[in-house]
Design a protein around this nucleic acid. Structure first.
Lengths: 195, 195
DNA sequence: AGCGTAAGTCAACAAGTGTTGGCCAACAAG
DNA sequence: CTTGTTGGCCAACACTTGTTGACTTACGCT
């Protein structure tokens, strides 16, 4: 065994990789624009220029497609490297860039609001990525969950009003203004003594 | 004309008012729990113990039902009556009580995240109720939209993490703790000088 | 009483959904 | 070339959705 292929970390390339990627791209867009229920497999397949049955074959069912298409990596750096008083602004800046990078986060937010599996996945991102990083900047690690929860609330609220609900004032703010307004808030949630 | 009924502000009572109210209650619950698409007319009618066709006759179509069921009144008081430095905490306290009063706000938030009409309705609540009240407490009325947008973002973010996504830290916070944490944030967004 | 209108029931339609299986062409390996 | 495997398309199934219309029952009036 192991004759035809060395055991790389990446799976062997398949002839259908292009189609698979096209499907995932289309799925991300549709989930971000329509949410889980209204993003139909037929529409996604049509966007990708591929038959709906292929989506089923590649990803099993709609939930499998969602799981494959919406994988989130917040790419959180180690905030411990920079001056403690700049953590708040750095977090906001990082999240803004992440959110505007592609539609994954908007898709996850839209789906999480109405779909149980989507909500669970948001929770796992929160617990698996945000919380561990913020644990290191919190004064007392025991308070980290509360602080991370407050930070997530503020950041998700901004994303909701700006990218999903599109409230005009939230849309029209520049990234710099957002950092200036939310930076101190995050700074306090993450580092200030409990009120 | 005007023989059988005096021209009160309330419409004449109908024999079907009980059924209509039961439908609206069931609709609110379903919209809050499932969002717009997954809240089916059949399920709502079943909850209300009424035939689905009656829902159509009373409210025209699903959008009409949603419009009739989800009417939001934030019941915002005049915050100008109290000491200026307590506005932040007062706003947070009021919103917490509103949100836990009934499921209307959760329904609106869930629907607004995936439904265009729902998002528009949230915007109209923002512009028609929140903004006018906050205009009076903002240092400069011209800044009111931005300040109200920031406040809405923080408040909706809390509601999202606490009532929709149910992040454990956000759920476990007591109302007093939330007021203590978010009060200063709202205070700053509403009254502090632009950063 | 009788009559008109409202309330309610039942069955069905048309459209759209996720999902499945059969069939054919293109490719890779022997 | 022959064979097995993969990628792809087509048609269909079983089900659910919003919505409609015909029919029956109950009520309020004169």
């Amino acid at each position: 065994m192991g004759v035809t292929e060395s055991n790389d970390s990446t799976p062997p390339p398949r002839r259908s990789d292009a189609s698979r990627a096209a499907i995932l791209d289309a799925a991300r867009e549709r989930f971000a624009a329509d949410g889980y229920e209204r993003a139909t497999i037929r529409a996604i397949a049509k966007d990708a220029g591929i038959d709906p049955s292929m989506v089923m074959r590649y990803y099993g069912n709609k939930e499998g497609l969602f799981a494959a298409a919406v994988t989130v990596d917040l790419e959180l750096p180690e905030f411990g490297d920079l001056p403690p008083e700049e953590i708040g602004r750095a977090v906001v800046t990082h999240f803004l860039r992440m959110w505007e990078g592609n539609g994954v986060l908007t898709a996850l937010l839209r789906v999480g609001a109405t779909n149980e599996a989507g909500a669970r996945r948001m929770q796992s991102v929160f617990q698996g990525q945000l919380l561990p990083v913020l644990r290191k900047v919190a004064p007392d690690p025991a308070e980290a969950p509360v602080r991370a929860g407050l930070a997530a609330g503020q950041l998700l609220g901004l994303a909701l009003t700006r990218y999903v609900l599109r409230f005009p004032p939230a849309v029209e703010l520049s990234r710099e203004e957002i950092v200036a307004w939310l930076g101190p808030t995050l700074q306090r949630y993450l580092t200030a003594p409990q009120p």
